[in-house]
Design a protein around this nucleic acid. Structure first.
Length: 897
RNA sequence: GCCCGCUUAGCUCAGUGGUAGAGCACACGCUUCACACGCGUGGGGUCGUAGGUUCAAGUCCUACAGCGGGCACCA
């Protein structure tokens, strides 16, 4: 059999995914057991415009690990996939395309533009799904959904209309976040607050009928053109007698009142605040309280309006700022300008500074929708966040402090708001235009031009993808889902809103668990961003190191906290993949006459020590993996598998088995040993499959004796594939602590001999003689049974036992093992007595210190009284062991004297 | 301002009250018939600081320091 020495990921990756998909392995229907338990996950739908980033790769890896694990465990498993229409992002992308043709969306008109977006989606939307195939994501493509599919759009209308009828959705004029570039309203969650170095301007306003002036401080002087009051704190002594006075607002000729409001902080600035109800959220509220007029001086393009006065109309907001400041200076009304750091809001799509504007929009009341979710998290900790700290609290705090949600967007791409208006301005909200016409009693209706926030349809994703509002079989079977795996930045935008819709429309939470992953940072711990140019494309990493290595790296790094991406790390897992490849290569090159299925036939007491040991280690590993995955501790599962495979299986088991496995003569025992090694390998491949789907399939397919019989019974009729093989179950009965202890003593013996060899600079090719001194406690029997292995791995030509170390030649290096077993290597001519004594004395000193510490602890009556009896016994045992070893070391020193 | 997280080997990080761990890096040796993307052997730690709880603290509590994050209407 020709097997290359180095694993080439690409050829495996290209072959297997297409086959799995074609054979329907990903769909829950692959499972033929009518009583199978159900496991389901819905993917957070990536933007259809996008390409995968490291965060996706991380989340998808975790979801795929869970999905493959549950599928192999016999669950009827659905990982539902789809993409999001991503309103603003997609519209921007297509507008950018149009710009290349020197066109704007307005040139095309709404209908043609929307067609154009659909065309674009048809051409480019497949990129992200192709990338998901590359990742090995075992999603069910037969149920792929898009948030603008007819079914999902129907769900959106149902949601909207129901809430409208219940008074949860309403239309109203309020101050909103407006993006002057994208020309749309944004919700509070779609703007990023940023601190910025700027200036604080102190402007003086003259009082009417007096030469007094009142000074106000502002970061946005241009808004003074829209001031309709100045406010002070009613308790503020400095201004008390001025309340009610009239101010002559400079540059406008307008007269505005000086009012009192307890919102004003007397300690900040001058204690007097200019009030611009049309352009500031706080001022808006104060304006409502005091019935102040709203003077709109900035328009939707962030330019000054006619109302700003002839000198300013048409100016950009920043030009206007300069000119206002200049005028104040000319008038002698600019008191001072100081450096000041303040927060500005940017559109999270285009980074433009948003403008607060008063605008008519659709809103969704959040309080009532959130109530059930709040009860569940507070009373039952549902959904259960992983890690629970800090996300449960973050989520709870947000639900407790909700503002109404701005639903409408002034875009063309998205779900059109299902509201129609008559010529005289009456509004009809309905599931269809026909319904609206019937209700209005006229066909002369105009539909609201706005579309809904992208997150509105996302909020329905777990139910709409399964068929809601119809009570479909899928909805019945797969809802609620088991777990949601996502990033922290959409806990509010998405997670909380799915909870609202899920509890409202089904009475149940859409998922039991929520796994919040950390963020993948660059190698310096910086957030990746296109602007910084430090983005690592997962496709490049796949290309360089292979998909499996990348997946394991991500799973191993995901302890819930952010982590820097380091090539060294993925390199080490690339090496791991190669290790797996070569271990399998060894097994296959020595597989003649062997079969996986014949691995551990026969009574256990006929197995060799290392066989009982590896089976015990294997089962402990399986139990660890089970426990780790049940609590989403992916890194723990990876570490357990990595160390089992590399340390236990490769470094020890294969080496311990080599004498038999590589025997030149064909024999029953050689075939049996080969079968056992193959069988452990095969179990390990199954265990690794959810993390490393490609290499495990590639190798599994080549193993002798795997086939239809290897499949989980739920998939009995399928084509053989490791992804439908049964995931190993950990069996307590196969854990053999005695075998592990015995094996440990053999390993210690070999390691100590190797250590001496290394210290004594004995060439690896040179064989040594070993004399083992045992005190007749049965350890001689253990070593004797593993004689061939000890000889091979310690490179010993001969091994003999003695009951008295006094017989050992003086020219020997010695060591004392746990349990007082002694080992000596006669090394005529190589021993420097002085040096050897120093070595032994160092060891004795180490033991003496440890014994001292332990004895002090045992000498403390509070310890022996209060600590658990087993702890005390364990300590006594250790002290006894040390005493025995010390005694042996003393004798060794005497022999060297 | 409020809330939260982190601080463990040179680096990046695991760590469940009871003998401090991994990967990488480093040092020495190795064409040992699966693998140099490897094998063997080593060195390297007062677990941020100061208190407290406990028989016992890297682990639990309090304060402080440094770093990072989230929320917030201070002009």
């Amino acid at each position: 059999m020709e097997i290359p020495k180095t694993y080439d990921p690409k050829q495996a990756e290209e072959r297997h995914y297409a086959r799995w998909e074609a054979q329907g392995c990903f769909a829950p229907e692959a499972n033929r057991d009518p009583h199978a338990p159900v496991y389901s996950i819905v993917i957070p739908p990536p933007n259809v415009t996008g390409s995968l980033h490291m965060g996706h790769a991380l989340q998808h890896t975790l979801m795929d690990v869970l999905t493959r694990y549950k599928r192999m465990s016999g669950y009827r498993t659905l990982w539902l996939v789809g993409t999001d229409h991503a309103g603003i992002s997609t519209q921007i992308v297509v507008e950018r395309e149009l710009k290349k043709e020197k066109l704007t969306r307005h040139d095309l008109g709404r209908e043609r533009f929307v067609e154009r977006v659909w065309e674009w989606k048809a051409e480019s939307g497949g990129r992200i799904t192709e990338q998901m195939r590359r990742e090995g994501a075992s999603v069910d493509w037969s149920r792929e959904r898009f948030t603008m599919d007819e079914g999902l759009s129907r769900a959106v209308r149902e949601f909207f209309v129901t809430c409208y009828e219940e008074g949860l959705i309403y239309r109203g004029e309020r101050l909103i976040n407006w993006c002057p570039k994208d020309q749309t309203a944004l919700s509070d969650l779609e703007v990023d607050k940023e601190t910025q170095a700027g200036k604080l301007y102190f402007l003086q306003y003259p009082l009417k009928g007096s030469d007094r002036r009142i000074t106000v401080a502002t970061t946005r002087p241009e808004t003074m053109l829209g001031d309709t009051a100045v406010a002070v704190n009613p308790e503020d002594e400095r201004y008390r007698e001025l309340v009610g006075a009239t101010i002559e607002l400079p540059l406008t000729g307008r007269e505005i009142p000086l009012i009192a409001d307890s919102y004003v902080d007397p300690a900040f600035g001058t204690g007097a605040v200019k009030i611009t109800p049309a352009h500031d959220a706080n001022d808006y509220e104060m304006g409502e309280r005091h019935n102040l007029p709203q003077v709109v001086v900035i328009d939707s393009h962030a330019r000054m309006t006619e109302a700003a006065g002839a000198d300013f109309a048409g100016l950009d907001r920043y030009e206007a700022r300069e000119r206002v400041v200049q005028r104040f200076e000319e008038l002698g009304l600019l008191e001072k300008v100081v450096d000041y750091e303040f927060a500005i809001s940017r559109c999270d799509r285009c980074r433009t500074v948003v403008e607060p504007l008063i605008s008519m929009q659709w809103w969704c009341k959040q309080g009532e929708l959130a109530r059930r979710g709040l009860e569940l998290i507070k009373e039952r900790h549902e959904p259960h966040f992983h890690p629970e700290v800090p996300w449960e609290k973050v989520y709870t705090d947000w639900l407790e402090n909700l503002h109404d949600w701005t639903l409408s967007r002034q875009l063309w791409w998205g779900h059109r708001i299902p509201a129609w208006y008559t010529a005289d301005g009456r509004v009809f909200v309905a599931r269809s235009e026909q319904e609206a016409r019937a209700a209005a009693g006229t066909d002369e209706l105009t539909q609201d031009p706005d579309v809904l926030d992208t997150w509105f349809s996302s909020a329905l994703w777990p139910i709409s993808t399964l068929g809601w509002p119809d009570q479909t079989r899928d909805l019945e079977t797969f809802y609620p889902t088991d777990v949601l795996v996502t990033a922290r930045d959409i806990i509010f935008l998405w997670v909380s809103r799915m909870v609202m819709t899920g509890t409202k429309f089904t009475g149940r939470l859409p998922f039991r668990d929520v796994v919040i992953t950390g963020t993948v940072l660059d190698k310096n711990g910086q957030k990746m961003s296109k602007m910084k140019g430090n983005v690592i494309d997962p496709m490049d990493v796949f290309e360089k190191y292979g998909v499996d290595a990348t997946r394991v790296t991500l799973a191993a790094s995901s302890a819930g906290t952010d982590f820097p991406w380091r090539d060294e790390r993925v390199e080490s897992y690339r090496n791991f993949a190669n290790k797996i490849w070569n271990a399998a290569r060894f097994c296959l090159l020595n597989s003649e006459g062997a079969q996986v299925s014949r691995g551990f036939e026969g009574a256990r007491d006929t197995w060799a020590l290392h066989d009982r040991w590896i089976v015990s280690r294997l089962n402990k590993t399986i139990l660890t993996v089970e426990r780790a995955l049940a609590s989403y501790q992916f890194h723990e599962a990876v570490f357990a598998l990595y160390h089992f495979f590399w340390d236990d299986f490769c470094d020890w088991y294969i080496e311990l088995s080599k004498t038999e496995v590589t025997a030149a003569e064909e024999s029953e025992s050689r075939a049996a040993a080969r079968s056992r090694v193959l069988s452990v390998l095969e179990q390990a491949l199954r265990l690794l499959h959810p993390f490393m789907p490609f290499i495990t399939e590639e190798l599994w397919q080549r193993l002798p004796g795997v086939g239809a019989d290897s499949l989980h019974e739920a998939y009995a009729s399928a084509e053989p594939t490791i992804m439908l093989a049964a995931y190993p179950r950990g069996e307590q009965a196969l854990i053999d602590d005695a075998a592990e202890a015995e094996m440990q003593s053999v390993i210690e013996l070999i390691s100590r001999v190797r250590s001496i060899r290394s210290e004594m600079n004995i060439k690896p090719s040179e064989e040594v003689e070993l004399i083992i001194g045992t005190s007749g406690d049965g350890s001689a029997r253990v070593f004797d049974a593993s004689m061939a292995q000890i000889k091979r791995l310690a490179r010993a030509g001969s091994v003999s036992f003695t009951s008295s170390m006094a017989d050992v030649p003086r020219h020997a290096a010695r060591a004392v093992l746990a349990g007082g077993v002694e080992v000596a290597l006669p090394l005529e001519g190589l021993i420097d007595f002085e040096q050897e004594r120093a070595r032994v004395e160092r060891e004795r000193e180490k033991l003496r210190k440890e014994a001292e510490r332990l004895e002090a602890q045992l000498g403390n009556p509070q310890f022996t009284e209060r600590a658990p009896a087993e702890k005390v016994a364990e300590l006594r045992q250790r002290v006894a062991d040390i005493a025995q070893r010390m005694k042996a070391l003393e004798q060794t020193l005497e022999a060297l004297a």
